[in-house]
Design a protein around this nucleic acid. Structure first.
Lengths: 222, 222
DNA sequence: TAATAATCTTACATTTTTGTAATAATACAA
DNA sequence: TTGTATTATTACAAAAATGTAAGATTATTA
């Protein structure tokens, strides 16, 4: 169940929001005192924060920034001032959306749902979709159509590196540094060997000549 | 250089946007005819799309959904109707933001910048930041403070799985299915062994008793 | 408390991954 | 074309990862 944290001093509005979001299937928690706001907010592990920017004796902008230092939780700012500077500021200090009082609560609901959906999807994006194939980082596999092949740690790293810079030439030195942290001194030829191994697996998937050698310059993933 | 694609039939507004974004350091491309809109949009590889929802003879909602099928590019909807249904709809069919004409162009600039920043960060999120430690999927390592330890494929998968559901109890069966695809029939005890190995590495990092056994139920990452 | 079932630990054999060495192939310049 | 530097390939040995077996712990319940 998704949890929404409400940080709002106006008791009437707070209650209204609590009831509304509870009725719409969310778990709701809210802050009623504001003398230790940042700590309180960070202690409550929520999926979205509804934050009134004009709390008594609290710098809302500062709070927003502090939250952002520790967390990517979506933040919706509630403001009562309708001028544009407010909007600009809220964008700049890390909030994901703002609404001005009074607001339409159905729109707020749609926006919270949309932000949470996005934030959930962002959780761990561990697949690189390269169009003609997909690299799965946590399984260490490459998938094309319905064929799947396991990659070893080295093969995965090379392929990931090249895929991220698809279309660019990547030097052998760069790849070697990425592979071996330039700690242990590994023979230059070892890269060639690993390259061959990767290429063989790619060819098993029908990805022939995906990695092209640019003699004297490096490799390029086409 | 970031590229913005403008899809707007009002020539005056289109020109204005082109000039404005060009002056602000973006590469701008725009659609002037709308008889093959979806294909045109998909062919132009842009970092953000500014889409007028009321194009002559074109269903903007449909376009938006079609784009979403193929791409996660941020979409900002331009609408002239100021009623709420429009906003709700735009949220639901995949747009990231909407603006109503006439709009303040500085606010639009801020919003485009913010959406593009977010979308760029989303590219490959291959690290799980768990607060007290970080799991790096492409290196297959776990990092705490400045200490780094290599994880094997199995250890990584178990830790990833538990971390993603931190605070929840995860059954042994679930983990085993995740580890071995329920293809090969691996002994139940093998999980225990892998668990021990992972726990030993975690302890090397000072992460003692991070994974707790819930006898009869599974494991929980605290 | 004793019996039982669940989980843990350790040691070991097998398989996989990795790096190196020796040799081959290739592209490019003289 | 020939010589040279760069990259590729193959085979092999060392290292790492993995699964299994056997026995040890631990929690739960009768």
């Amino acid at each position: 169940m998704q949890k929404i944290l409400i940080v709002e001093d106006d008791e009437k509005l707070r209650k209204e929001l609590e009831i509304f979001f509870t009725n719409n299937g969310y778990e709701v928690e809210s802050l009623k005192t504001f003398d230790n706001t940042i700590q309180d907010i960070l202690n409550i592990n929520s999926n979205l924060i509804l934050l009134d920017i004009n709390l008594p004796g609290v710098d809302g902008e500062y709070i927003c920034r502090e939250i952002r230092k520790c967390s990517d939780v979506p933040i919706i700012i509630i403001t009562s001032k309708d001028n544009e500077m407010d909007e600009l500021l809220s964008i700049n200090y890390g909030a994901d959306h703002y609404i001005t009082k009074p607001f339409n609560i159905q729109i707020l609901l749609a926006k919270t749902a949309s932000l949470m959906r996005r934030s959930n999807m962002e959780k761990v994006q561990d697949k690189i979709n390269a169009g003609d194939f997909v690299v799965n980082l946590s399984n260490s596999t490459i998938i094309k159509n319905d064929k799947k092949i396991d990659l070893t740690k080295n093969e995965l790293k090379i392929l990931k590196y090249l895929t991220e810079q698809r279309g660019k030439i990547v030097s052998r030195e760069e790849i070697m540094e990425y592979l071996w942290d330039s700690e242990s001194f590994v023979d230059d030829n070892t890269l060639s060997v690993n390259m061959t191994r990767l290429r063989n697996k790619l060819e098993e998937l029908g990805l022939k000549e995906l990695i092209e050698t640019k003699r004297g310059q490096g490799y390029i993933l086409k």
